[in-house]
């Protein structure tokens, strides 16, 4: 069943008169893994931000349906409660806010929305240990302030750790592989693979075909200049690696 249906999505920046997304169509079914590649500035992060509900982007045309409902009607936190998760390209630091407090609030608000009971302290800590292990996150990081002073790679790993804690239905990973060393890339990918399931879908934004060797996608899309220029299977990524984006950019934009 279609989990996410993006149709003819046009997006502009709130105050300025620039259109960033110029008619994106994308359908993701439950359990599928989709990858989006494309040159810098083509609109990949913008799409991710619009899915998560960032207010500075305005949808001027088109629609997004999630689980059959209008996603654009929901507040940011409501989307999170409904299972939309965004692993940030640039995770945000929250000085003085302990990871533990932050995660407990997050886990419990998502659980409450699903009609589940709040996790007690012992169960919560057990879950933390288990999921930290899944992505090989240094347990000491959980004792620190959210992302504060984390290395680039630690921040990325922390995003996947939160993904594992919150068990979303649609996980959008914005360049999670950038800044990870080779071993980290492998452990994080293993973690993601373990989290794959029939209900959970992934949208991977990446610049590197290598990630897709580890996490095998069902579909690969190329975003160029605010549109999906081509879609295919994982072989498309291999072709892109060899040819680059030049041929898309030379083509005049389709009407």
């Amino acid at each position: 069943m279609a989990l996410l249906e993006v149709e003819n999505l046009h997006v502009s920046v709130e105050d300025e008169d620039i259109e960033i997304l110029k008619g994106v169509d994308l359908t993701i079914n439950e359990g599928e893994v989709h990858a989006i590649m494309g040159p810098n500035g083509s609109g990949k992060s913008t799409l991710a931000a619009v899915l998560a509900g960032r207010e500075e982007y305005v949808v001027t045309e088109g629609s997004i349906r999630y689980k059959g409902e209008d996603l654009l009607e929901l507040e940011v936190e409501e989307r999170a409660e409904e299972g939309v998760f965004l692993a940030f390209q640039y995770p945000v630091e929250l000085p003085g806010v302990s990871m533990t407090n932050f995660l407990r609030e997050a886990v419990n608000s998502v659980r409450e929305a699903r009609g589940e009971e709040e996790l007690g302290a012992a169960d919560f800590l057990k879950l933390v240990r288990e999921r930290a292990k899944l992505v090989d996150l240094d347990p000491d990081l959980v004792k620190r302030s959210v992302n504060q002073g984390f290395s680039g790679g630690e921040k990325k790993r922390n995003e996947i750790f939160q993904l594992a804690m919150l068990e979303p239905t649609l996980a959008v990973l914005d360049e999670t592989d950038s800044g990870l060393d080779i071993d980290a890339l492998r452990t994080v990918s293993d973690g993601v693979n373990k989290l794959r399931s029939d209900e959970r879908a992934f949208l991977l934004i990446t610049h590197y075909q290598r990630l897709l060797d580890y996490i095998e996608p069902d579909y690969v899309h190329v975003m160029v200049n605010g549109r999906i220029a081509e879609s295919g299977d994982k072989d498309l990524a291999i072709r892109l690696e060899e040819e680059g984006y030049e041929r898309f950019q030379r083509e005049p934009a389709a009407a």
Partner: peptide
């Protein structure tokens, strides 16, 4: 209180009040 910080908290399911409390408490933690 940064829009980025609030957005990050909301994306993890926290409402306005919870997010602001966390951020302010974090600010005063020391």
């Amino acid at each position: 209180v940064g829009e980025d910080q609030m957005f990050y908290c909301h994306q993890r399911g926290l409402g306005e009040e919870e997010a602001l409390k966390l951020i302010v408490n974090g600010f005063c933690q020391e």
